[in-house]
Amino acid sequence: MVADFTERVLELIERIPPGKVVTYGLIADALGDGGARQVGRVMSLEGAAVTWWRVVRANGTLPPHLMTDAQEHWQAEGTPVRRGRVDVPSAIWHVG
C-alpha cells in the first residue's frame, strides 16, 4: 500500500506543467489519501526522480537546503516568484 501511495504521488507530480506548482496538501487532497506530511515523506525519499521544485509548502517555500536549486528551476520555467518564494496564488496548478 505504501508503494502504491508513493507511485500515485510521483505520477501526479510528473503531470504538473512547467511554471506551475502544487502544495503538499493539495496532492494529498487530490489523491484522497494521506496528508501533507505523507506527501513530504515521499518527496524526501523519492522526490529526486521527479520535478520536485514544483511541489511547495503552502507559503511557496521548500526546505532551506532545496531553495537555491529550486529558485533556479523556477526562474528557468517562468514560475511566478515574489520575494524569493513562489507566488502560490499565481502559480497554483489545479489538479484534475
Score class of each variant (00 low, 15 high):
V9Y: 06
V9S: 03
L10D: 01
E11A: 13
L12G: 06
L12T: 09
L12S: 08
I13N: 01
E14Q: 14
E14F: 15
E14V: 15
E14L: 12
I16K: 03
I16V: 08
I16T: 01
I16S: 01
I16F: 06
P17I: 04
P17T: 02
P17L: 02
P18A: 11
P18I: 12
G19M: 07
K20S: 11
V22F: 10
V22W: 12
V22I: 11
T23W: 01
Y24C: 04
G25M: 05
L26W: 11
I27R: 02
D29R: 12
A30M: 08
A30R: 11
L31H: 06
L31Y: 04
G32R: 11
G34Q: 03
G35M: 07
A36M: 08
Q38L: 13
V39H: 00
V39E: 04
V39C: 01
G40R: 04
G40M: 05
R41S: 10
R41C: 11
V42Q: 00
V42Y: 00
V42L: 05
M43K: 02
M43H: 06
S44P: 13
S44F: 15
E46P: 13
E46Q: 15
G47W: 04
G47V: 02
G47S: 03
A48N: 14
A48M: 14
A48L: 12
A48F: 10
A49K: 11
V50R: 05
T51R: 15
W52D: 06
W52E: 07
W52G: 05
V55N: 04
V55W: 02
V56N: 03
V56Q: 04
V56Y: 07
R57P: 12
R57M: 12
N59L: 06
N59I: 07
G60Y: 03
G60F: 03
L62A: 08
L62P: 06
L62R: 08
L62I: 08
P64V: 05
P64F: 10
H65A: 14
M67L: 09
Q71P: 05
E72A: 13
E72K: 13
H73K: 12
H73L: 10
Q75P: 07
Q75S: 12
A76P: 11
E77M: 01
E77G: 00
E77D: 06
E77W: 02
T79N: 04
R82E: 09
R82T: 14
R83M: 11
G84K: 00
V86T: 00
D87F: 09
D87A: 10
V88C: 02
V88R: 01
V88W: 00
P89L: 05
P89K: 01
S90M: 12
A91I: 06
A91Q: 06
A91T: 04
A91V: 06
I92H: 10
I92S: 09
